[in-house]
Structures are given as structure tokens and as C-alpha cells.
Design a protein around this nucleic acid. Structure first.
Lengths: 137, 137
DNA sequence: TATTATTAGTTTGACATCTAATCAAAGGAG
DNA sequence: CTCCTTTGATTAGATGTCAAACTAATAATA
């Protein structure tokens, strides 16, 4: 470990945390739902209105190609609706459907126990323990 | 944002940090090399010896299927060698090749400027700024 | 010893993600 | 008005990842 940069090791650990928590979430969620798909539904429920695919891609820090992929899956399941943008011939507008809202609520309910466990462990209450763990690996 | 759990938002931000730093690293590295592949080469250079695929999977917190995939790509490029385990008919032993060591050194050199920039920004020196940023998003 | 359970590794199928290339529409410069 | 650039969205190809199913070999147990 002597020759490995501290900065690299921290980011590496962050990657492992992200990966493990992601798969834990996806295992808890209703069949077929992924974290990417859930976060899009959740975004609409929390903030309302409609969005362009580009706006969503920017909000979640993914490329437009990635967002196209996610939206196609959500649309095929009937959780979002896509319509042409009346103001811009190139664009589209994405909106949440009733089925999408219901699925988001179902995911929230499925995720709640795990998040409560994390909170009970103190995760999120104080920042020091997490980062200390990361840095002193 | 009111209805979204703090724990969820923290892990979500961690995921975005992991994703962005990962793609930044991969863009800096020699063509065709990914972070997964690099970390395996790096592991061998730092710790020496040989490993079973299962040991590597455990070290990096990925499934064996994932490690099989990564090792196949590394082997096809000549960066690692796989041999049957003489002690266990089911197992294999993975070792680093000279080409693998050279590629790892090349990656290290390519990654260094970015890691130095991070260090210059204070990343890794003190834990508070990072986590405060995460928590107060 | 024979059956059962565990372990190592692989294969398959699905999903997310990136980059690069493409197409269409909108804007700006001359 | 025309040409060039930018922007929105998609497609194609590559990679990483997981879960589930599978094979082969070892270990444990009856």
C-alpha cells in the first residue's frame, strides 16, 4: 500500500461504498426497478412539472445517451410519458404518469427499512465517523 | 427535497462522486484500460505473488462473475496469466506478466497529474470539507 | 464408501454507463 | 438568405456489474 496515492485510495473506497449501497437498494426494490429509474421517478414526485431529457441528464450528472436509455425503459413500463416539445422541434418533454407515481411510492416504502437502519447506526448524523473510516483504511 | 431521506441523498451524492471520478480516471488512462483492470494490475504490483480469482473478487468487493470478466479481458491483452491451481482442481492462479507491470506503470504516470491536482486542492488532507459538502447539499 | 453439501469458476441475460457518430432543428455570422 | 456552429436526442459498440443457473471438483457426513 506504500506506493498507492491517498487520493486514489479514498476515491476507490468511495466507489466501493457506492456500488455496495446501490446493489443493496436494488435488491430491496420491487422487481425490475433500478436505482436510476427510481431516482427519475422520485425527482418528478418531489419537484413536479415536466422536464426535457437534457435537463434530467444534467440533474443526475449522466450523459444524454444514458438518460435516453433510462427514459425508454421507464416509458416502456408506462411510468413516464414522452411528448414532443411544442416550443422546440428538437426537444421532448417528459412527465410522470399515475403508474409512475404509484411505483415510486412503492419503492419508497420498500427502501424505508434499510434507510432507517442506516439512520439508527448514526449514518448521516455526524460526518466524522464515515470519513475517518475512509481515510484511515 | 423535503420528503427525501437524508441517508438516501448522501448515498446518492457518493454515487455521483464515484461515477464522475471513475470516468475522469478512465479518460486519463492509456486507451482501452479501465479502472477495474488497472486496480487488478496495481494490486499485483503492490502486493506481489499470485492470487485466485476468488481472492481478487473478495479483495475488490465484486462478484466472481465480475472478476472472471475482468480477468478475461486482462488475459486477452497479455497483462495477466492464468494457470490451473496445482493444489485444487477447481481453482486457478492469476499472475502478473511483464507487459502487465509495464502497463500499470504507464497508468500510474498518466494518473499522477490528476491525483496531484486533487491533493493540491486539499482532497484527502482533512476529512471535514468533503463530508460537509456531501451532507449540506 | 456413497450421498450430499459446499466451493471455484464460468456462462447467460439484464441493466447502467460511457464515447463516438449520426440526424434534425435552432441560432448566429457574413 | 446562406453557411456554420451549437444543441437535443438517438443509435451503436464497448465495458462493468449483478443475479441466477450451470459444471466440476472438493469436503463433509451418513
Amino acid at each position: 500500500m506504500s506506493t498507492s496515492s491517498l487520493q486514489f485510495r479514498i476515491l476507490n473506497e468511495i466507489g466501493i461504498i457506492a456500488q455496495l449501497s446501490q446493489t443493496a437498494f436494488e435488491r430491496a426494490m420491487p422487481s425490475g426497478m433500478t436505482l436510476s429509474q427510481f431516482t427519475v421517478l422520485n425527482h418528478f414526485v418531489r419537484l413536479g412539472g415536466t422536464r426535457s431529457p437534457a435537463e434530467l441528464a444534467s440533474a443526475f450528472q449522466v450523459t444524454r445517451a444514458t438518460m435516453t436509455n433510462t427514459l425508454q425503459r421507464l416509458e416502456s413500463k408506462g411510468f413516464v410519458a414522452l411528448a414532443p416539445d411544442p416550443e422546440d422541434g428538437r426537444g421532448k418533454r417528459v412527465s410522470l404518469t399515475d403508474a409512475g407515481r404509484a411505483m415510486r411510492d412503492q419503492c419508497i416504502a420498500a427502501l424505508e427499512p434499510g434507510l432507517k437502519r442506516l439512520a439508527a447506526m448514526g449514518f448521516g448524523e455526524r460526518s466524522e465517523p464515515l470519513l475517518d473510516g475512509l481515510v484511515s483504511l
